[in-house]
Design a protein around this nucleic acid. Structure first.
Lengths: 194, 194, 194, 194
DNA sequence: AATGAATGAGATTTCATTCAT
DNA sequence: TATGAATGAAATCTCATTCAT
């Protein structure tokens, strides 16, 4: 006996999952409670997702997509100078974390779609940075001794780690300070030549 | 019917827990399997730990203590120059991660003693760095605009993130490169004046 | 894999619990055995009751409700004389114990919904008696020195204790004798004036 | 490695058991906690008692012995009149309950040495009353229609039930009132002829 | 597609009892 | 006799998943 309009089950499950995961962490959440919060039956949950990890993964992918597109937009509007561009991309990330704290926590926090041997999301969002660094290095504008993969990975960890920590208590700093701090650690800045 | 010598139950449980947590993550491990791997009865597990999270926490604390003391030892032997000291402390961390990969993963990886609202272990190991930066800043040897808390937190995240990523596949870089990369991002270096 | 019709799980669990508690006492009974006797899965037990004590409490409440209503019915049909009324109410209790021995044992026997600091069920069923005595005393038809609370509580214990003992071996007396004996101890009779 | 003087292990276990049983009820108490409260090792518990039920039974027996002897003493000092004697015996019970509330609760409360098909302790303490009634009835001083077994059993339940209830909150009445109330319900009084 | 009671494997935890010291 | 760490059977409880409606 179908009781709800058909169209909105999936978005409701995603929203319910997002808030529950953010509150409790995946391992403390179960499919029944997600359905309950979405005011749907458990069975409905299973007709949309294989399990809670699938829902988590979808949430993470959606978050990353939004973040990615906001970074690209920022990039397009930034001055064509590597440092300005790095700063713009960082600012986009800080803004995303500020406006979607639950999504950011879910995508970059400790939650993993368990079973899945999913590539780290940090690595995922890291790839473009490595590319940029490589190009700068070839252009002679970056320390040639730098291991570009390590540096971009270290920076990505710094960004995610700092923002997650900040989200726990946003009085820990102002957006401006966050951006400034991250910019100084960004390889484009910290390892530039001259 | 007690069958084992008295002295070794707890160390065996710790060792069994360390290897199982490292292999599977806490949520895939249960008290029965820890006891089984330690060749002890379940009850023995519970006469030494309240639950698997307590065992995890003890492992984390022990790892941090060892890491802390190795950092201090490195510090004592380093030249009295801030940059040399930062490098020495980084080298000690890399060495610890290399020689105790499971312990490092457990202490800094995503595993958390759940329910416990335990202070992040990264923050914990972060405190001394912030102190050093504050002193340098007062001595006028560090950018006075730097928010020392944010910077040290960002660096700590970079270090932990990079080492965890490296441990997944140690061919990703040489110890030397890791140290070099982290040194460049360390606030003492990246934000020094002149 | 749900296998049963929906309607009958709870009644079946109640019936299974009643017979098992009566046979063995709560502490010798466990949720698995209740479910097994009801030919249901353990999980089904827990989707209807928090634990075995909750089931016990529901059985006790239901028994008391039935007993209460039978006492009221008896009262309505009795002559408007206090002694006749007491006798009618006693007879109703004896009849209830005779026809629902397990329910009576569960409600008045030693089984308690443990942890619960539940008001004694004897006290519960005692309240009306105390009221009646108080009114008779004010009307000058009962010894004015009598402590009505103590007397009604003592009587209630006598009634419950005698019936429980009788249920252990009904050849210990005839219903008529039980009623007669209890009537003589009832404060309305034992403490009447003139 | 014996650590305690040999002589006092058993009394200490009995005292520990008495207080724990009184606090929590047998089913919430276990041999380990009894030994712990007695500041002895578990093993010592098992060298003195088969299990916690054996300890309970010993406590109950000891309590009954003391109560019995106090009743006898009271009887010896009472006037040779049945009613005075009943009153004296009741007073002894009230006094015992007042001075040894834990022991009284243990002996007459709902705790049972489970497994044991032990005769009810109430029945046990009931026997003498039935004897007395029978003699009075033969002497023509008691209603010849009275079923002496039922009456004495009902009275015993009233006495135990009232005193247990009173012990829960001794402000419920004064010793004098308790004695008076119980005396009125005692078959010797309530069923005497003329 | 939606429902939700029912399922039962499996995890957590307790505690009476043993036995080497 | 006393000790107490170790044992492991058994109880409690959870929750992902199914399927008749």
């Amino acid at each position: 006996m179908p009781r709800h309009k058909l169209e909105d089950a999936k978005p409701r499950l995603l929203a319910a999952g997002l808030s529950l995961f953010a509150e409790l962490g995946i391992e403390r959440v179960n499919s029944n409670s997600i359905a309950r919060r979405a005011k749907l039956a458990v069975g409905t949950f299973y007709s949309h997702f294989d399990d809670k990890y699938a829902l988590l993964q979808e949430l993470q992918m959606r978050s990353l997509d939004v973040l990615r597109s906001q970074r690209l937009a920022a990039l397009r509007e930034a001055a064509p100078d590597p440092e300005a561009q790095a700063r713009a991309v960082i600012a986009a990330a800080v803004e995303f974390a500020r406006t979607h704290p639950e999504a950011y926590r879910l995508a970059f926090g400790r939650e993993r779609a368990a079973s899945t041997r999913q590539r780290s999301l940090i690595s995922e969002s890291n790839r473009p940075t490595a590319e940029v660094l490589r190009r700068l290095q070839q252009a002679g504008r970056l320390d040639p001794d730098l291991n570009v993969d390590l540096a971009s990975r270290a920076y990505a960890a710094a960004e995610a780690g700092l923002l997650l920590w900040w989200l726990e208590d946003p009085t820990r700093g102002e957006a401006r300070e966050l951006i400034e701090t991250l910019a100084r650690l960004h390889p484009v800045v910290a390892c530039r030549l001259s």
